[in-house]
Design a protein around this nucleic acid. Structure first.
Lengths: 138, 138
DNA sequence: CGTTGATGGTCAAGGATCGTGACTAAATTG
DNA sequence: CAATTTAGTCACGATCCTTGACCATCAACG
């Protein structure tokens, strides 16, 4: 099962980033997704991102650096807290998120069509339950 | 779905290596599994391992180095080809493989029990089909 | 045979990702 | 105002994978 999970993750990533590259986003890498996906319309604070993505503040910091260099996000001072900075998506960042969501939705649609909607729904339910159980080791 | 796959892989690995450590194998790391799992009773050649695991010869080489240093495998000259060396598991190596298989089987048993045998079987079938379809992008 | 191309394995260097510990600045608490 | 907590960064290292080149041996062909 571990091998299946690894192969699935790899194959999904390959298609997602290949299609993103075709659609004008050749420089985003897998780990950027963990930050971009959790930015709302008006951004979020780095610590909040770290909590939501389950990654360390350190990693989030470097990801934001990279995304800023690529023009996907900006750092803005937080008006409520002078220690904090809000990470805000640029237009380009929002475009990337929208395209990534569309590609993922398309891939899911393809799988649902392939297995049949019912089987696919059952698969996803079971998948979530297995992950939950494994993480709690119950 | 990609996130689920990643979380599953991570959680499975965590439990496997934690339990392996408890059972006398604290030094094996995830990537060692890709070699150990594909060694038969009487070993295999490095290039064969690279082909079966889908990894580069280079990586297999360093993994074998590490496993040899830890006492899990030996390199023996191949009697049929003086270029080649057979990678042969030691008793310790065989013990690790047996214990890893037992732990993985136990985890699967737990999930089958948790979901019900029928649902779990359907889940695994669908999982394999999704992975196959995704890798072929059909 | 001997030359030529393919194969088994290794050496060297580098990139990507994640983890840990320590540190500065600002907020919060008492 | 002093003590503690929180936001973010700096520095270092571990793990894993990739790429390109290299040498020794095998195999096939002239």
């Amino acid at each position: 099962m571990g091998m299946l999970a690894g192969q699935l993750m790899r194959a999904l990533q390959d298609e997602l980033f290949e299609r993103l590259a075709e659609q004008g986003h050749p420089d985003v890498r897998p780990r950027h997704g963990s930050v971009l996906a959790f930015l709302g319309r008006d951004g979020a604070r780095a610590t909040e991102l770290a909590a939501r993505t389950g990654q360390h503040k350190q990693i989030v910091g470097t990801i934001v650096d990279e995304l800023a260099a690529l023009g996907y996000v900006r750092r803005e001072p937080d008006p409520d807290d002078r220690r904090a900075k809000r990470v805000v998506p640029t237009d380009r960042g929002r475009d990337e998120v929208a395209k990534a969501r569309a590609i993922l939705a398309d891939m899911e649609r393809r799988h649902a069509e392939n297995l049949g909607a019912e089987r696919y729904a059952a698969f996803k339910d079971a998948f979530q339950e297995v992950v939950r159980a494994q993480r709690e080791r119950t």
